[in-house]
């Protein structure tokens, strides 16, 4: 039931005004980056001196940026596949089974989202030092899997709770074994959550900077750490172009995925 609008007076209008300001606060800086990326000026800031795609062209010639992009892409894809697989299994165990120590298991699975990233970062480095192992790309991947696992568990768990058990029981009483039931019944029903998880993990990994600063092998840059080291030198217009491209990819991809998930949810019903 919605409240009667006529009784809303000055207070409500003030709240609406504040809300508009909050949205402006959240998006204005990002819009400024996008606008400045088309600036012809050789400085990264204002004033605008004309429209130009020069900085995008320059970006495509920047080898260290391209290398960082490849690294991040590779890490994010491997992370999202492995992490989603692990998370689905764990979520099935948590939702479909009762077992002693469930509370504890739940806490441990969620912990990486609550422990400060700096601490997790230092921890993995210490493990490598303790085992006398060098930092490799796999360390980065494993670290990202740990960071993103809680989110997969939460997302798949939420969906799985909504999937009625009777569908699975029906399949089993008709002679399907557990694996068949999972593949034919459960998996299609939780598909939207799986697509959402894959995208979420991809974004978390692709965007991670705090822990990656600790974990990256020496000489290797991921996309965000590359941006950080570019920022240390100067605010070049190239960074604005890079930022804009990344916004297009990371906002466009989930929107596409969201549409896809909605489509899958509709056809699964």
């Amino acid at each position: 039931m919605s409240l009667d609008t006529s009784t809303r007076g000055f207070g409500w209008r003030a709240v609406q005004f504040l809300t508009v300001l909050v949205y402006v606060f959240m998006f204005a800086p990002i819009l400024v980056v996008i606008v400045l990326s088309f600036n012809a000026s050789q400085f990264g800031g204002f004033p605008m001196t004309g429209f130009s795609l020069h900085w995008y062209a320059k970006l495509l010639e920047n080898e260290s940026v391209l290398r960082a992009f490849q690294t991040s892409l590779w890490v994010a894809i491997v992370t999202s596949i492995v992490c989603t697989a692990l998370g689905i299994l764990a979520a099935v165990a948590l939702v479909r089974y009762e077992f002693p120590g469930k509370e504890w298991v739940n806490t441990i699975l969620i912990a990486p989202a609550l422990v400060p990233e700096t601490v997790l970062g230092v921890g993995l480095l210490l493990l490598m030092r303790f085992a006398h192992q060098p930092r490799t790309m796999w360390l980065l991947v494993l670290g990202h899997i740990m960071l993103a696992l809680p989110y997969v568990v939460l997302v798949v768990q939420a969906r799985l709770i909504g999937v009625k058990r009777v569908y699975e029981e029906a399949a089993m009483s008709l002679g399907a074994n557990r694996l068949q039931t999972f593949r034919e019944i459960t998996l299609p029903l939780i598909m939207p959550a799986i697509v959402a998880s894959l995208l979420l993990v991809f974004t978390i990994s692709f965007d991670n900077v705090t822990a990656s600063m600790f974990w990256r092998p020496s000489g290797v840059e991921t996309m965000p750490t590359e941006i950080l080291s570019m920022l240390k030198i100067s605010i070049s217009p190239e960074i604005n172009a890079l930022g804009t491209l990344m916004i297009v990819v990371t906002v466009g991809l989930p929107l596409l995925g969201g549409g896809l998930a909605r489509y899958l949810a509709r056809s699964a019903r």
């Binding site: 165990a93 948590l94 479909r96 077992f99 699975l109 912990a111 210490l126 493990l127 740990m146 696992l149």
Partner: peptide, 23 residues
């Protein structure tokens, strides 16, 4: 359930709990 949880729990044990112990 423990078989299903094993990959996740082993990952977090090795990458999070053991490192905090070493710390």
């Amino acid at each position: 359930p423990w078989l299903l949880l094993a990959p996740s729990l082993i990952t977090l044990f090795v990458l999070m709990i053991v490192p905090i112990g070493i710390m």
